[in-house]
Design a protein around this nucleic acid. Structure first.
Lengths: 343, 343
DNA sequence: CAGTATTGGGCATACGTATTCAAAAATGCG
DNA sequence: CGCATTTTTGAATACGTATGCCCAATACTG
């Protein structure tokens, strides 16, 4: 095939005009059934495909969504946080089901990320994925809003929302985890994970934790909280820090599975048994969570629904509907690291 | 901002014609330095971005690559094989570095996948990712070739190549794993993984395994080989099958990490200790490999180089250069499941 | 200073599709 | 069968950018 056929070629073969071809293939009612059939047959035979560039140019919409990881790069910058990686699958799927293509990018490789896609008309809207709060990016977000760019982001539902947000109910998740550990008789529960403003999601989990303790008359002890970012290494460091403080603890609620995995490793290294000496509960339920020894009890985030919700919200935004932020329910997955199940 | 500015708007403000704006912004030498500066300043100020649709339409190239997962969907179809997921990061990065955007898709959601992208001019070329051989897709591949579509695929280098292939040196990997186990004194090494034509990559690993045995005068025993696809479950089933056969074995070379992980689980369940009773070596080095207990010794595939090689090869293809298939070296990562390191 | 080379930039147009508007064809009705 | 509808189709054009071609202005040469 030398050159790709155009709608003119189809028109000529069908003995009609180009506009008729366009109408026929787009399902306009203004074309008779017989002509449509004929045109479709010819198009099929020539393997004709509508040129998306020309079409998008004319229609002023691309039927494409952009996915942007705005997160600070991990040490190995080609790594994507497994949590988001897991969500990627469902986002791809949800987009496809809704008839949209998906364009992927990572913030760290483009300075102008906030403008790059919709403004150059490569996408109709943007899904922003990243942990951490948006403060460092607030100006960019503002400019997105100022330019009427359609976007949705994953994160924590707060009041000062900048655009619609889809996220898990972190507070409830933290509460559930803590109640579970308390119900197993644990009394000195440490929280490993940032509870500052910098990670609104983690802070939400922390608050759930604190409220869980309060329910039984305890009060969150600052000595039992260690900051940690979302890496395995910081989970190890967190446990090391607790030990260094000399503080007693019989359980750990880790703000993410990676942290929990790191924590378990460090506990193992120093000879504390999980769950006997220390019960551990994580957050996320990434696929590795079931592979650890002991398998990790964790608060599951619903990746599938999350991806679908993000895509649905974005498409609604694009269509001009008003979209409300949503907080998805989480689920406690009991494995063995909490001690509830026999090893 | 009501509507996005066009090159005409910029031209008007700069007191020049639209073509001059286009030339200035594309770096044509046919525009004076002073005019260019002026135009750039105005463009910047208005936050002007070239309309990619119009540009692509005119230039007949999109500066976009498409990534296609052609693999049969896993049970939960939103899951992507972790191996490819790991590669995704480096592909995104490599594309960005070369100035290309990346469009993602999954075969199972579109019947016409092979034509969808380049033929509709949404991408300049396609990266095909999937395990398994291409037989079921040969006709589609043929049609890709027939339509002069640019593509590269990940897989096993064989002779009947259809288009350029980037893959790991599976034979050498299998050989290395087997030599390692032999050097540790293991003599009854089982191979868990398909060695049929259906998975050329796995077959390559199997041949490396067989050759490794041959080097020391052994011959691969069919009783020690069990078919397994690339899931954890089939790793468990594989071990169960070996046990059911009543065959003796003191080591397992699993054709992938997921298989190895499943195998270790089953071994644990039936009370065989790893590595004491059975040494295990996997293949891939997915991130979960270091998290298992004991940590998995495995043959590492270089995801980063793989992604870069795929992108580089595809871009070369697009540029009309002839591209040769390449087999990337693998590396033995010794952890504890093989028994070489103390637990 | 005349004439030629060079530089800068405008005009026209093409890329392929989708829609508006108007005309032609088909249909219905009395 | 003639006129009023309704249905189907075509002509013209717009979407925004990029480039070939050509002309004007400037620089250079002898």
């Amino acid at each position: 095939m030398a050159v790709k056929p155009t709608s003119f070629d189809i028109a000529q073969l069908a003995g009609v005009s180009q506009p008729t071809v366009s109408r026929a293939l787009r399902g306009s009612t203004a074309v008779s059934e017989s002509t449509r059939k004929r045109i479709e047959a010819i198009a099929q035979q020539l393997n004709y495909k509508v040129d998306k560039n020309a079409s998008s140019l004319r229609l002023r919409e691309t039927n494409t969504l952009a996915l942007l990881f705005y997160e600070d790069p991990l040490p190995d910058s080609s790594m994507i946080n497994p949590f988001f990686l897991a969500m990627l699958g469902s986002i791809v799927r949800a987009s496809a089901q809704r008839g949209y293509d998906l364009l992927i990018s990572m913030q760290q490789f483009s300075s102008d990320w906030h403008a790059e896609f919709e403004e150059s008309r490569k996408a109709d809207g943007i899904i922003l994925l990243g942990h951490g709060d948006f403060e460092p990016y607030r100006d960019k977000l503002d400019s997105l809003i100022a330019s009427d760019t359609h976007f949705v982001r994953w994160g924590h539902n707060s009041d000062d929302q900048l655009g619609p947000v889809v996220g898990s109910d972190n507070h409830m998740g933290g509460l559930t985890a803590t109640r579970h550990l308390l119900s197993l008789g644990r009394r000195r529960i440490a929280f490993v994970g940032d509870c500052s403003d910098h990670y609104p999601e983690l802070r939400g989990r922390y608050r759930g934790y604190a409220d869980g303790l309060r329910e039984v008359g305890f009060i969150a002890d600052p000595a039992l909280q260690v900051d940690a970012n979302l890496t395995e290494q910081s989970g190890r460091d967190g446990v090391a820090a607790l030990i260094a403080r000399g503080v007693e603890f019989d359980a750990i609620f880790a703000a993410s599975d990676l942290i929990a995995i790191g924590a378990m490793r460090e506990l193992e290294r120093i000879g504390r048994s999980v769950p006997h000496d220390v019960a551990v509960v994580g957050f996320d339920d990434i696929s590795a969570a079931s592979l650890t020894r002991p398998p990790l009890t964790t608060i599951q985030q619903d990746f599938t629904r999350a991806g679908e919700a993000l895509v649905a919200a974005l498409i609604d935004t694009i269509r001009g509907e008003t979209v409300r932020s949503i907080a998805l329910p989480t689920r406690l997955i009991v494995r063995q690291s909490c001690g509830a199940n026999p090893a």
